[in-house]
Design a protein around this nucleic acid. Structure first.
Length: 799
DNA sequence: CGGCATTTATTTTTT
DNA sequence: ATAAATGCCG
């Protein structure tokens, strides 16, 4: 036992009853609520452990209990445990849960955080080893892109043919794989074969700017560990136990980081679920979790398979879908729950009807019809594949006045006005931050256009100084037009003034009344007030006040919030430091709302009642995913389906639409192949609205002719083809398949009353045929004669 | 330089 | 459809 261990043991001992101390037993009340596997995952403390935790099996509980157990058994002090998550939210949650389990005994764990925040912490201490100063700036995507644009422009690259975005994506991918510019494998270089060359240039620029991007945070630390044995050794010794959440989402760089740190003690516990790996497109390697047993010798694999979240039907449906994937570690989720509703499946004519129907369903669940207890809006969620699908729901919910909340979307700190404001703060705090200066130099417009900016840039580059200093020289030498020079001068003076305020140089309120009242004793301004002053004096607040666009008031509101957020920090520097890593946006208000989010955004969440719309081939699984990544892409989409279904606790409704407007064009599609993979014994196929003249259907006049024309669904060609298709392929025959009547194949001939889609006019009904021309009455209004090749058959026949 | 017209792309998202 | 980005003209 080392000294501190003895200390710890003594400390602990005083809190433990004598009888237990005598028996050498420590109280472990926190284990009481755990099942056998969870308990095993907590108790196996030595050596590598892989906790394979299926959806809803209580992995966070096991993980947090493990941390508590390690401390309670004196295996490590709080600051000797390295616990890594992917999101700040997850980190916060874990901190909270560990904290509440321990009571106030132990103060927070300093090494519980995201990969990135932990790396920043380490990197600040050893920055010089990779040529940075410890106060390096962390660049966001916007800065990165601006940097690359500059770089490409200097090389006279045609940005049309070689978009900077593409290069950024490439560099990002390479960093995820821990490839430094000199180690890009031959044949992997792209971007006209010059990608690695620009990558190297980009890294050089970052070094001069004393900046690091997100990928660098990890890569630099890995680099430091690999080349400085003493540093690595120190951390290896320090972190007695390592815990990793969402291990299936780790990329190569993160994997290397973990391996290096765990190499001494091998006490690494990774928690994850290969079936929930949905971030392959941003560098996550499912292989990491699949290889775990080989990577970490003597690893114990513990499966958490009892699901506490969903009903048997939902679980079976999810398992049925995911079974289609190869290369799984394999788990059999089970639940002690009984009964429950089957997964509900329904098809719709188009996306709008789908949104309308879901809106009505939500309202009726909320009222508590169908003999069910009312379900609150907060308990319901709509999970979509791509964010553009959200609009249909927002539109619909807005018109019927159903409160909703969009989760995800542009985050607070990514908004234009926030980034602008932050750029001001950055310039004031670190005048050398040329990227920030570039952002604000003409925001708001102050007459310093492209030409003036180029001049400043040239001067700065020539003298090897920052943009701000370059601007100073220009002003001093009387360059530029009078107008531009004057406003540039004003800006520089402003920046200097704000900086001196921040530095506490005895600057008082710029307010005549207060000066008069207090004289020399006027109070020194705090950083929140300075921030306010910066935004006002720079004209940035006015800029939005004068803006008449509808979003201007919201932006002003956001700026207010930003300033308010500053109150929680000691100074602006500290604020900036946190903000670059933490992108939280918890504007939770008390009103009950339905949640709308992407499937990705829903990972880790659960809802009693879940809607999964848009299950159409091409949308979900996404065509692009399949085109770009083939079978792997499809499997990842399938995992996404699995994640979606397993979010549901009690009710899960899958739906699809036969027709949808995609990029302004009508498109008709087949139901998702994942629908065929749902075990039919766990699925209830619902009757589409209007089939039996259903009363709740809010029809408009323009719908009526179409509905009349489609009264006989059972004899329609679409229905017959559907029958043929499903029985041919021997797939699950829905027990009440009235809703699924779809086929993408275009019939050779049209007949009167056929429903068709025209790219420009939308959906209509054929009322006459003359040679190759069709007379069509369009739902949107108007009758037209069009050549048959310009329309597509709308194969879905709902009525 | 700034405002308006035209062009162009358009998954998923954290840090 | 739509937003963002570029291009053109006053």
């Amino acid at each position: 036992m080392t000294n501190w261990e003895e200390d710890q043991a003594m400390e602990m001992a005083s809190n433990v009853p004598l009888s237990q101390r005598a028996m050498g037993v420590r109280a472990t009340p926190y284990m009481d609520g755990l099942n056998a596997s969870q308990r095993a995952a907590v108790e196996v403390m030595d050596g590598p452990v892989l906790m394979l935790a299926g959806a809803g099996t209580g992995k966070t509980k096991a993980l947090t209990t493990r941390i508590v157990h390690l401390m309670n058994m004196n295996r490590a002090r709080p600051n000797e445990i390295l616990a890594v998550t992917f999101t700040n939210k997850a980190a916060r949650e874990m901190k909270l849960r560990v904290g509440s389990m321990l009571g106030e005994m132990v103060e927070g764990m300093p090494w519980l955080g995201t990969f990135h925040s932990l790396c920043v912490k380490i990197l600040r201490r050893h920055a010089e080893l990779v040529g940075l100063k410890s106060n390096f700036t962390i660049l966001d995507t916007d800065d990165q892109l601006r940097l690359l644009k500059q770089l490409l422009r200097a090389e006279n690259i045609d940005e049309k043919r070689w978009p900077p975005r593409l290069l950024l994506g490439l560099i990002d991918t390479w960093k995820n794989r821990a490839w430094t510019p000199d180690r890009i494998p031959a044949g992997e270089d792209s971007f006209n074969g010059r990608g690695s060359e620009f990558y190297a240039q980009y890294q050089n620029r970052l070094k001069t700017l004393n900046a690091a991007d997100f990928g660098d945070l990890l890569l630099h630390v890995v680099n430091i560990f690999q080349t400085n044995e003493d540093v690595l050794d120190k951390y290896q010794r320090w972190f007695k136990y390592i815990l990793v959440d969402e291990y299936q989402d780790t990329n190569v760089a993160q994997y290397m980081w973990l391996r290096l740190l765990a190499a001494k003690h091998h006490n690494i516990c990774c928690v994850g679920d290969d079936d929930q790996s949905i971030y392959g497109w941003r560098g996550a390697e499912v292989g990491n979790i699949l290889r775990f047993e080989r990577d970490f010798e003597g690893a114990k694999v513990i499966r958490l398979e009892q699901n506490y979240r969903s009903t048997p039907h939902i679980l079976a449906a999810a398992s049925g879908v995911i079974a289609g994937n190869k290369d799984r570690l394999g788990k059999t989720l089970w639940t002690a729950r009984k009964d429950g509703e089957k997964v509900r499946l329904i098809g719709h004519w188009d996306g709008e009807e789908e949104a309308r129907w879901i809106g009505e369903e939500i309202e009726s669940y909320q009222r508590g019809t169908r003999g069910l207890d009312p379900i609150c809006l907060e308990s319901m969620a709509i999970l979509v594949r791509a964010s553009h699908q959200m609009r249909a729901f927002e539109d619909r919910f807005l018109t019927i006045g159903l409160p909703y909340r969009v989760i995800g979307g542009p985050r607070f700190y990514e908004r234009l006005e926030i980034r602008d404001a932050m750029a001001y703060f950055r310039v004031v705090v670190s005048p050398d931050d040329s990227l920030a200066f570039e952002r604000i130099i003409n925001t708001p417009k102050r007459g310093i256009g492209d030409k003036a900016q180029q001049t400043i840039n040239a001067i700065a580059r020539k003298n090897g100084i920052s943009l701000l200093d370059g601007a100073r020289i220009i002003v001093a030498e009387g360059g530029l037009s009078t107008k531009a020079r004057n406003s540039l001068s004003t800006l520089i003076l402003g920046i200097d003034r704000w900086a001196s305020m921040l530095n506490g140089l005895n600057v008082f309120r710029d307010d005549a009344d207060i000066l008069e009242e207090f004289g020399d004793a006027a109070p020194i301004i705090n950083h929140v007030e300075i921030a306010q002053i910066i935004l006002e004096e720079s004209g940035y607040t006015d800029h939005w006040q004068n803006d008449k666009t509808p979003e201007a008031p919201g932006r002003l509101e956001n700026l207010k919030e930003l300033v308010k957020a500053l109150e929680g920090f000691e100074n602006i520097q500290g604020f900036l430091e946190h903000i670059s890593l933490i992108m939280e946006n918890d504007t939770d208000d008390a009103t009950q709302k339905v949640s709308i989010m992407t499937l990705h955004g829903a990972k880790g969440l659960e809802f009693p009642n879940v809607f999964l719309p848009g299950w159409e081939d091409g949308l979900f699984p996404s065509q692009r995913s399949m085109d770009e990544s083939g079978q792997n892409g499809l499997e990842e989409e399938r995992r996404l389906a699995y994640v979606g279904i397993t979010r549901a606790e009690a009710i899960c409704t899958v739906s699809f639409a036969a027709n949808r407007r995609v990029y302004g064009q009508w498109q008709s599609s087949m139901p998702s192949r994942f629908i065929d993979e749902l075990p039919h014994e766990n699925v209830d196929v619902l009757t589409p609205p209007g089939l039996y003249g259903g009363g709740t259907f809010a029809s408009t006049e323009s719908d009526l002719p179409a509905r009349a024309a489609k009264a006989d669904a059972y004899n329609s060609p679409g229905w017959k083809r559907m029958q043929a298709r499903t029985s041919q392929r021997g797939l699950h025959q829905p027990n009440n398949p009235k809703g699924i009547i779809i086929d993408a194949k275009v019939m050779q001939n049209y007949s009167i009353t056929d429903r068709v889609i025209h790219g420009k006019f939308g959906i209509g009904t054929v009322i006459g045929i003359e040679g190759d021309k069709l007379s069509i009455v369009f739902d949107a209004g108007g009758a037209k004669k069009v050549v048959a090749s310009f329309v597509t058959r709308a194969d879905y026949v709902p009525f």
